[in-house]
Amino acid sequence: MAEQARISAQNLDLYYGAFRALRSISLDIAEHRVTALIGPSGCGKSSFLRTLNRMNDLVQGARVQGKILLDGKDIYAPDVDVVLLRKRIGMVFQRPNPFPMSIYDNVAYGPRIHGESNKRVLDELVESSLKGAALWDEVKDRLSKSALGLSGGQQQRLCIARSLAVKPEVLLMDEPASALDPISTSKIEDLIRDLRETYTIVIVTHNMQQAARISDFTAFFLSGELVEYGSTGAMFTNPKDQRTEDYITGRFG
């Protein structure tokens, strides 16, 4: 791939106990691009996403072999600070998961745990993050209200703002729009296109139109294997592998 790789997975295997969830995945993720991971349920795309910020560390019995390089350094090396890694690689989850606190405190949570206590700095971060997530205008008058009072789409954009507030370099999104209505979904998609300017984005999606609309590169996973990977345009118009074609034309999945 001609683009500069920000993250590079090399012969990555993931086991849950004896089950091999990922089989020798090698894949480069380009900087300032949107990379979509697609495939049927259980194909390993979410598992792969969660290896990128070591979220699988939490799963009992999960074990990784191979390497994932971030800027050339293996994130599974023993001297890696997982906390720092997750600060650099933010994550947005499938279902909006705002904390049970005010909108302001949700966004300020990340900066605060990383030691920022200056009120003015926090105010600015909250504002810029909410603007970055295209939510500022809707919530600027009720920042002190509970985040749980927002609609699902607003909550998800709040979660994106919360991730942006720690100034990550990479943003992982695990089906961020799958629990949302079509209007909220299109807002999130617009947002992802904007965020691409600043962040490297990896997104898991079930929705192939969504992958086609927002991503620059697409990786097709099947049964824990990476079947095909390339530019989104080429993949959707002219897939090289028969299985990819079957999947994107809706013959299975």
Partner: peptide, 15 residues
């Protein structure tokens, strides 16, 4: 407490 809340915090780099 729902697991996603915990993951949300850990995902932000919380200890």
């Amino acid at each position: 407490v729902p697991g996603p809340l915990e993951e949300g915090a850990l995902g932000l780099g919380a200890t």
